[in-house]
């Protein structure tokens, strides 16, 4: 399989970064960038990454199961990740997550019927001092209140 020219360029560069014969090191970055483009880690992606990094498919499969950001099923166009870990918990993270569930009508690791949004309750993502925090795709949002989350989601809905 082939990826977009930009991604192909990224992968080509990526494979040269590691010491000679250590292309296996590119497995995880390659998977997450491929997921960003393809939408999920499909069997094809596993086989392709294995081929490019010169490892066996099961070596890639092992990695896919291990890392929590790698998904075998497509997520929504906007993946809403709400942290409920301790710092967020103390300042309304759980309430925010409950609110997000109601707002989107989906639960943990579920996707809305239109494929626009998916929701995930996540572990600490490093925004503790500006809690509660939400990450939508790769964008951080700090001091998020239910109202602010509504605005964020509505804004994304409108724009797309």
């Amino acid at each position: 399989m082939t990826f977009s020219p930009q991604l192909e360029q990224r992968f080509a560069k990526m494979l040269t970064r590691y010491p000679e014969g250590r292309t296996r090191s590119a497995v995880i970055p390659m998977l997450i960038y491929a997921q960003d483009e393809v939408g999920a880690i499909t069997r094809d992606v596993i086989e392709e990454v294995a081929k490019r990094c010169k490892v066996t498919p099961v070596q890639v499969d092992e990695v896919v199961g291990y890392y929590s950001m790698l998904h075998r099923k497509p997520q929504g166009k906007f993946h809403v990740q709400v942290c409920t870990n301790i710092s967020c918990l103390l300042v309304g993270g759980e309430e925010l997550y409950e609110h997000a569930k109601k707002k989107l009508g989906v639960g943990h690791k579920e996707t809305t019927a239109d494929g626009q949004f998916s929701l995930e309750e996540v572990e600490c993502m490093g925004a503790c001092s500006w809690a509660p925090a939400v990450e939508i795709n790769y964008d951080f949002h700090h001091h998020v209140t239910p109202e602010k989350l509504d605005q964020l989601i509505d804004g994304l809905r409108k724009a797309h």
């Binding site: 090191s25 998977l31 070596q59 092992e62 291990y66 929590s68």
Partner: peptide, 20 residues
């Protein structure tokens, strides 16, 4: 790609090498 354990330095090295 999402794993607290990779903050442990040797787990991080395995991860850097493309493993669990």
């Amino acid at each position: 790609a999402g794993a607290y354990e990779c903050g442990e330095e040797t787990a991080l090295l395995d991860s850097l090498e493309g493993k669990r």
